[in-house]
Design a protein around this nucleic acid. Structure first.
Length: 928
RNA sequence: GCGGGUGUGGUGGAAUUGGUAGACACGCUAGAUUUAGGAUCUAGUGCCGCGAGGCGUGAAGGUUCGAGUCCUUUCACCCGCACCA
């Protein structure tokens, strides 16, 4: 009786669906376990074998935890807003919702075939109005909140207004765009517009004129994490800097907590490091330099206040607001020219041009806060407007960028820290004695820093300060296919849409492109006004609604919470649900989300806690990055005459290589020549040069992608081998976190294993289990396996568990074991990995319930104890032979026995041993 | 430049606190069985050598009775950040 995967798997998938086997219980006496995958964007291409890797791993853990008595939440859904559906809509006119629906259907079919134990009753789709109504609701909560830095907590905006009414800005410590100062009386006197403009400065979701990454090709603004090397992450289009009025999120308020929280979560070190880097905390001081003959001061941030006596000039960013005010008449044209030149540069040019020093002198001077010396003020594009205060105090002797700038413009480089050769390069190390620095002289750098800060504070020149590289996140996108922002405008002032009018559904538009005058697609909608009583109304009957939409990360920043309580019509998630499910115990997904999704999600969760909606600040306790599965591309070689040359003959020819579709190549690298000719029109007449009738291709490992014709579809694998084989093979490929090439050839090994497992229960041709007592040996095989599996699954080492199964099944087959007492444990053991065959064997053993909740076996140590050990006998550390001895033999007896062996005498070559090392139960080493 | 990671057979990869390097699987070789097979079974397979034996975990040193594992130096590749004051 052969094992037929396709029949068995369909049957059990239907069984699970009908019986709702994997439905998580909202409230349970059992302990909870929440296993989550990063939900996919449903693209038109469908899944390839790389995508399910992480899903299989989390499914194994989810199923294992069910066997271990946990109430498991293992949901799946779709991150279904996004660019591809919209671009497809632009090309074809098909509504993105329609494309998305189709793609989701296909994804669901593919996922179902793999036999995941998802609780589909909890599915979420970010583009579903019932879901994004709550994304919009969250936006309103952020809009209605400010960040109290004294309490380190977000609070309702009403409290801030109350503070303004009572105290003005006195004693206010709030995260804000710029510092305001006013009295309660002044606040009273402000009109609505003035008040709202002030509040915008404090709201966590706010509008501001900011420099944004504008991508003309995509027609939208991009967040910093969506730009790589000056190009858009999606599509690789150029990105330029542009000033625009934009919705933003005040994530910077949470910089410190986002940093601190990293110490409490079990994430890959590289990922935490990426977030630390992105947040970019640096401690130092903010110092004010008084301008000469000018009322203003220049504020700088420095991490090296100990070098303040080494300042010989200052540099402002070209965009710095003071530049226009302080530039002298003589320098005006040079400064203006430089500013224009800097503005013209794209982000990419600027990055590519790091080495070139450029700048211009403003003609103005600042006064040194301690010495009163005149310090020339320059502008230069190495100073970034977006970091710190957009101005630096230049210490050319101890900062390499300042050093280069000074060299280029022939400015002095006074040395203030001993230890380097500042003629050759800047001495940047934070060690050495301070010199030429008045009250700091003689101190070590580490002593001088706090001393300098104290002195700066005492003289009222500034204060110690922590600076962060993290920028507020731009939230608006000039796109159609995203969540509408629930804001309308009264005389240009933003007002919140009432909660009763949510969801604010996407309007119909005539086209998905921006308008002629560059407005976002939503500006094309004819029913896109808001009436505070009636909700959305036709244009002209109410106030204009916001036309930008939310970015991709909005919906994905809280989906983990919605799974806990997916149908709730009254709340985004109920306190009762979060109290039970708390947080995600295991989150698996790609490392590319390090500074995007994973950071924003942490931000929103901290906000939810602040406002009392949830209790867990960190959404993902444990996170694993699954490695990428790369493709094994196939290449056909073509010589100068256009003849195709078999790979084994290509040394004799000058050839170029062309990609061949991997489906045209078998496991032995032989090309299906007829198939290849039919594959592309231009190849139909091709000639082929080979010998012995085998035409070979060469192989190379590349990223799996359509354009490289190396995509392997899980559906094809399942048709040929079944889902259980696919699941186990993906795990068998190697450690989960490592990236590794897919090679379909190796899959037969895993498939054979499953067939062997099946055969183990059908020895002699039919179902064959006996009641005999198991032997010691058989029990040892079984319990070795049980022990290994429990350890491996807890350690997420799934590749080694597959090996352990193979060893056990090989051994049991060799021992011709047919004993029920041993074999009946195997289906449960393998159920997390190969659930279909497990259910089938379990059913054949006479069970009617699913195997999914059977207790997972636990090994008994007594079956593993050994009485003997095969000692490796080595000489000078080199193993020569093994010899079996009882384990209870004393050290001296072992030594004596081993030395008396004939073989030992042979290797001693007549010499007497200098020393004999005996490690009981391990080894014997004889030193000659 | 800074930070993180990885280097083991023809291939994917195994190796408790330092204790038999190469488990398991692919591929390959030979044989059995079969009408045939990409099915099944048996034996072999790190490299060099007829053999005894020697050499072997990117490279070079070191610690140790003993090193893939610990230490120092170094090379290669991958990923992230990058004028962050």
């Amino acid at each position: 009786m052969d094992y037929r995967a396709s029949d068995v798997e369909k049957k059990w998938q239907a069984f699970w669906r009908v019986k709702e086997t994997f439905k998580a219980h909202d409230y349970s006496e059992k302990p909870k376990f929440y296993a989550l995958d990063m939900f996919p964007y449903p693209s038109g291409a469908g899944l390839h074998v790389g995508h399910p890797l992480g899903y299989i791993a989390s499914d194994i853990v989810a199923r294992y935890k069910r066997h271990k008595g946990f109430n498991v939440l293992h949901p799946m859904g779709y991150d279904s807003f996004g660019l591809p559906a919209e671009q497809y809509a632009i090309q074809t006119g098909q509504h993105p919702a329609e494309t998305t629906r189709k793609n989701i259907k296909r994804y669901r079919q593919q996922l179902d075939q793999i036999g995941f134990s998802f609780d589909w009753s909890r599915e979420v789709r970010t583009s579903d109005p019932n879901y994004y109504r709550w994304t919009q609701w969250i936006f309103l909560q952020l809009f209605d909140s400010w960040y109290d830095e004294s309490a380190q907590q977000a609070k309702p905006i009403e409290e801030l207004i109350l503070h303004f009414q009572r105290y003005g800005t006195q004693d206010l410590h709030a995260s804000c765009g710029s510092e305001f100062q006013f009295t309660p009386e002044e606040w009273d006197g402000f009109d609505d517009a003035a008040r709202e403009n002030i509040l915008q400065n404090y709201r966590l979701a706010y509008r501001t004129e900011s420099t944004v990454n504008w991508c003309p090709a995509l027609g939208t603004v991009l967040a910093n994490d969506e730009v790589k090397d000056g190009l858009s992450e999606r599509g690789g289009h150029p990105v330029v800097q542009k000033k625009m009025m934009q919705w933003s999120m005040r994530i910077t308020a949470y910089a410190e907590r986002l940093l601190q929280g990293l110490d409490q979560i079990d994430w890959p070190e590289s990922l935490k490091e990426a977030q630390r880097n992105w947040i970019g905390r640096s401690a130092g001081a903010s110092v004010h330099f008084q301008l000469q003959n000018h009322p203003d001061q220049i504020e700088v941030f420095t991490t090296r206040p100990d070098t303040i006596f080494g300042v010989s000039f200052m540099v402002l960013a070209p965009e710095h607001p003071l530049v226009a005010e302080i530039t002298t008449a003589e320098q005006a044209s040079a400064v203006k020219a430089y500013q224009e030149q800097a503005a013209r540069k794209t982000e990419r040019d600027r990055l590519a041009d790091v080495k070139t020093v450029s700048g211009a002198f403003t003609g103005a001077y600042a006064l040194h806060p301690f010495t009163g010396e005149e310090i020339p003020v320059w502008i230069g594009d190495y100073v970034l407007a977006s970091y710190g205060t957009g101005a630096v105090m230049a210490v050319p002797a101890h900062d390499s960028r300042d050093w280069a700038f000074a060299g280029h413009f022939d400015l002095p480089r006074p040395e203030v820290i001993e230890g380097g050769n500042i003629k050759q390069e800047a001495y940047e190390a934070k060690e050495g004695k301070v010199i030429n620095s008045d009250f700091l002289n003689g101190l070590e750098v580490q002593e001088a820093i706090p001393r300098a800060i104290t002195q700066i504070e005492e003289k009222g020149l500034g204060q110690g300060k922590i600076n962060y590289r993290l920028r507020d996140a731009i939230f608006g996108r000039q796109r159609y296919w995203g969540e509408p922002i629930p804001i309308y405008y009264v005389n240009g002032l933003p007002r919140r849409v009432k909660e009763e009018h949510l969801p604010l559904e996407l309007p119909e538009v005539s086209a998905y492109l921006p308008t002629e005058d560059g407005e976002p697609p939503l500006a094309r909608a004819t029913v896109w006004n808001y009436h505070p009583e009636k909700g959305v109304v036709a244009n002209g009957e109410g106030y204009p609604l916001e036309t930008t939409t939310m970015p991709g990360w909005a919906g994905s920043s809280w989906y983990d919470l919605r799974y806990m309580d997916p149908g709730n019509p009254d709340q985004f998630v109920s306190p009762k649900a979060t109290e039970y499910w708390k947080d995600v115990d295991l989150y698996i997904g790609g490392s590319e989300h390090a500074t995007g999704h994973l950071l924003y999600t942490r931000f929103w969760h901290k906000f939810f806690v602040d406002r009392g909606y949830t209790s867990a600040e960190e959404p993902f306790k444990k996170l694993i990055n699954q490695g990428m599965i790369t493709g094994t591309s196939a290449f056909v070689h073509r010589n100068e005459k256009g003849v195709m040359v078999s790979a084994d003959l290509r040394k004799d020819h000058k050839t170029t290589k062309i990609h061949a579709d991997v489906s045209l190549v078998n496991a032995s690298d032989e090309l299906d020549v007829e198939g290849f000719k039919a594959w592309r029109d231009d190849l139909s007449q091709a000639e082929f040069l080979n010998h012995e009738g085998r035409f070979l291709v060469s192989r190379e490992v590349e990223k799996m992608s359509k354009s490289k014709y190396n995509v392997v579809n899980p559906d094809d694998i399942i048709v040929e081998y079944g889902a259980d084989t696919l699941r186990m093979y993906e795990m068998f490929l190697g450690p989960l976190e490592q990236s590794k090439p897919w090679n379909t050839a190796g899959i037969t090994g895993v498939h054979n294993f499953l067939k062997k497992l099946w055969r183990l229960f059908h020895q002699g041709g039919n179902w064959n289990l006996t009641d005999e007592e198991p032997t010691e040996k058989e029990l040892k095989i079984l319990h070795t396996l049980i022990k290994k599996l429990n350890e491996d699954i807890e350690a997420y080492s799934f590749n080694t568990s597959v090996s352990a199964f193979m060893i056990a099944v090989n051994d049991l087959l060799y021992a011709k074991c047919t004993k029920q007492a041993v074999l009946e444990k195997l289906p449960v053991l393998i159920s997390p990995f190969a659930p279909h065959i497990a259910e089938e064997l379990w059913g054949k053993m006479g069970h009617v319930e699913s195997i999914a909740y059977e207790p997972y076996p636990v090994h008994e140590e007594k079956y593993l104890v050994e009485s003997k050990h095969k000692y490796p006998i080595s000489f000078n550390g080199k193993m020569r032979f093994t010899y079996e001895l009882p384990l209870d033999l004393a050290k001296a007896e072992v030594e004596e026995t081993v030395l008396s062996l004939e073989k030992t005498q042979h290797y001693l070559e007549g010499k007497s041993p200098k020393k004999v090392i005996v490690v009981p139960g391990k080894i014997v080493n004889i030193v000659i």
